[in-house]
Design a protein around this nucleic acid. Structure first.
Ligand SMILES: [Mn+2]
Ligand SMILES: [Mn+2]
Ligand SMILES: [Mn+2]
Ligand SMILES: [Mn+2]
Lengths: 219, 219
DNA sequence: ATTAATATTTAGACAAATCTAAAAATTAAT
DNA sequence: ATTAATTTTTAGATTTGTCTAAATATTAAT
């Protein structure tokens, strides 16, 4: 697998909801910031190598082989993210770009040893689950903050939008993974929320709330 | 810099004794396992970008810029080697191939943080010095084992040949960096040596002795 | 000083990954 | 059911890094 093939496979995996549904050419082009014609070329190659099923004009669908390949790349990506954040003190908005390179390093031993060195983490710095050596994927108890009601409590376990701008926003307002959150009330007008983060009062927009995953604490 | 350009620069650096003398095309081709014509092509590109000085048929000479570039690549290579050996328990004959890939990861912050995480090591697992952030290179007190006389003692600090086969040989005979070595006697016939390694008697050929660097302990 | 051997460069080709512009298929709108 | 808009594919070109075969320059041998 070339680096480019790997990047395509990963993009298709994400766009297809983990290989569930098929993905149109243009969606891949947008995601990868390339021309649709380039995507068609690459799709043909991936199809020849049987990573995807492909019918002209009908989009692509990841094969079993393609899904497994995607999972090992994602595993590497997220393990490296943990390494950068936990061991090298990278900020969570800085890890992605470097992991985008590190995910292509070829050495099974390296990644297994790294996994062990990091103490077999289950989630990356954004709360995304890390696939296991055999592709098994822990499920996140994914409740969006926006779906919670007054008086409910939980722990912040992930972000839906992991763009640099959103992560920086969270840093600025001192919102981090692992934080304890309690809903005070919800404005009827714009669905913005008044919450307690680690016992500190904060007002956040609906937009923010729809991008934070919370693991609820039963009352 | 592309990955290929970086590999050429590094090869030229090593073949030229750190940029001291110039290097013929064929030497590079042999080292990189490519055709001389490919080397010529690449040399032209590197010359355009001013990493090397080049006169047709006269070989290449690294420029100041080229030397600095080589040193940062070597710095990355050796820091990653330390990481693999010290943190992930790689054997010293296993680190090179993976470092060959990791050295091309682009992120200044990554390498500075890694350096700090490893506690600013001065030497890689083969005893080669690690260039500093500004290219300064620690000198090894390089005395070859083959140059030592009976009764002299020292510490094994590096290998001249870092091929996998030689490193495996050393592992097999329990010779490692940091080991204490004392010369018992030298056979006049084949210049083979009887030595004490960590107080254990061992007989080694001249060939071996010319590939081990020793830091002498004054008697 | 020629000639022979060796080293190096040029010329032309190829695979990978991309692009632009044009053609074709699909889907949406009338 | 046509027509229009959109999506996707094809055709042909470009860049990077490589190769083989042939030409040229350098060095060594007579
Ligand atoms: Mn990537
Ligand atoms: Mn992530
Ligand atoms: Mn390399
Ligand atoms: Mn080394």
């Amino acid at each position: 697998m070339t680096r480019s093939e790997e990047n395509y496979i990963k993009a298709i995996y994400h766009l297809s909801g983990g290989g569930m549904h098929s993905v149109p050419t243009n969606a891949i082009a947008t995601q990868m910031d390339t021309q649709p014609s380039s995507v068609t070329d690459m799709i043909k190659k991936l199809s020849d190598k049987e990573y995807v099923h492909y019918k002209k004009y009908r989009g692509v669908h990841l094969s079993e082989k393609g899904i497994n390949t995607a999972l090992t790349i994602i595993r590497k990506h997220r393990l490296w993210e943990v390494f950068l954040a936990d061991k090298l003190d990278f900020n969570w908005d800085e890890v992605h770009d470097v992991a985008e390179q590190l995910e292509h390093i070829k050495s099974e031993k390296l990644i297994d040893k790294l996994d062990e060195f990091l103490d077999f983490p289950k989630y990356d710095p954004h709360g995304d689950p890390i696939p296991g050596k055999n592709g098994e994927l822990a499920q996140r108890s994914l409740q969006l903050l926006s779906a919670m009601k007054p008086e409910e409590e939980g722990i912040c376990v992930g972000v839906k939008d992991s763009s640099v701008s959103f992560l920086k926003f969270l840093d600025k307002h001192n919102i981090a993974l692992g934080d304890h959150i309690k809903i005070l009330d919800v404005e009827e007008f714009d669905e913005s929320l008044n919450i307690l983060i680690e016992s500190k009062k904060l007002h956040i927009s609906k937009r923010i709330a729809t991008n934070l995953f919370i693991k609820p604490i039963p009352a």
